[in-house]
Write a protein that binds this DNA or RNA. Structure first.
Lengths: 238, 238
DNA sequence: ATCGAACAAATTGTATGCAGTGTGCAAAAT
DNA sequence: ATTTTGCACACTGCATACAATTTGTTCGAT
């Protein structure tokens, strides 16, 4: 049920009145985790967190279940939930899976996208290029993610979209934490342009191939950043 | 966190002592939904269900959140949760997505599977063929699903596996509901054999192609069953 | 001094109670 | 007879209270 992963503004642009506390708490916590306000590996006390969020433990615990399903936090019996630490080893796996899924989505999207879809995508691309030129980090980041989600939506396959959603938040978190160090902007913008062109040409094979490559590259770039930063978190599981 | 989808025995073959009530309630409800004991589209009263499961409403509500994430139930504000009705329109989408993911998994599995993995897979295949010859419906069904999950596990990609898990339970439910009408057993067994052979030959491309085809065929076969049975559930969403 | 056991504080897991909101029935107005 | 309004019931949403389990600490034994 998490919508587009957007760090800046709220999850649902429209009618964000009508959602329960668990939903709101989950959304709030998700952005906090993605933005690194809740540091990886840290423990969360239910009582303290519930007070800081202004809700009681009951809805908070329900929110936890949701975040655990997204693997943003780790739930262990009778222990404090732990903010999942993005371990370097998991990055290749994550982006490998994401690349495969987005490739599939792009192939479908090339067939099924309406002209309206493509138009919106082009608008996003233009806006992103603007943010790139102006060096607006956060906005660029935000639009970038939105583009990926839009392509997946264009595939008109709800289950595929859902599978994507469960993975994307973790990827966004990793990307956000490496925001400053990412020196691949210009390549990334170009790659997006190529993907958009392929989609507009209704060339599913090309769109899929390019998007896959793009995501794979993003993954390896991130991996290098983390490796050099020695953000290595070994963290055992049992 | 739901493991292999298995209708007969519990989710965790080992150490199923140490899990909380929400987990147990979710597992119990999941199998009930898959087996059709909780009919599609029906409404679930928290109080009544909690009494029938022997737990209080709090852990039950947490279980609901988990099942909602798997899209097995639908959660609407201030309304009784509704058992998701597998609408015929969703079937193609679901199996389309599943086919893509399992294909990807098979490609990785062909590279990464250990000899031990392949051996276990062969054992499962043999057992399944036995159940097929003996006409043991439920056992065949169970092993079949286990084979698919095993292949995905063999891809050694946790996020991919997780994406698969979120989708597979719905597919299993559809398959289970069409169990009696499925007249495709022998084809299915042969296809599995072919996939296994490709994996043993470390031919990722072939394994992926065959598995994708297999899942697609399963989907279309199911679609025909439901279409003929007129299990058509129009059910609006807003 | 170090290791271990028992106790105490803290924290999670579960149950229950109360308030807000939707649902259905009934009575009245058109 | 049909539609509308109001009321009462039922159910969900949230908070609080209680029970169970873990964790930190202190005291004692080796």
């Amino acid at each position: 049920m998490p919508k587009t992963v957007d760090v800046k503004r709220a999850r649902k642009p429209l009618k964000l009145k009508r959602m329960g506390l668990p939903q709101r708490a989950a959304d709030r916590m998700r952005t906090m985790i993605i933005k690194g306000e809740l540091p990886p590996g840290s423990r969360t006390q239910e009582t303290q967190l519930s007070k800081s969020l202004g809700v009681s433990r009951t809805p908070l615990r329900e929110a936890m279940k949701v975040l655990a399903a997204e693997k943003l936090i780790e739930l262990r019996p009778n222990r404090s939930p732990r903010i999942a630490n993005l371990d370097v080893k998991g990055i290749p796996q994550l982006f490998e899976a994401l690349a495969g899924i987005e490739r599939l989505a792009a192939e479908f999207a090339a067939e099924r996208a309406t002209d309206n879809d493509l138009q919106r995508l082009r608008t996003l691309q233009t806006r992103m290029e603007g943010f790139y030129r102006d060096g607006k980090l956060e906005d660029y980041f935000s639009i970038n993610g939105e583009i990926h989600c839009t392509i997946v939506r264009m595939a008109r396959n709800t289950p595929l979209q859902q599978a994507h959603e469960t993975l994307i938040s973790r990827a966004e978190r990793a990307r956000y934490l490496a925001l400053g160090a990412d020196r691949r902007w210009s390549d990334s913008v170009d790659e997006h342009a190529g993907i958009l062109a392929a989609l507009e040409a209704r060339d599913g094979e090309a769109a899929g191939r390019l998007l896959r490559l793009h995501v794979q590259r993003t993954g390896t770039a991130l991996l290098e950043v983390f490796a050099s930063q020695r953000l290595n978190n070994p963290a055992a599981s049992p």
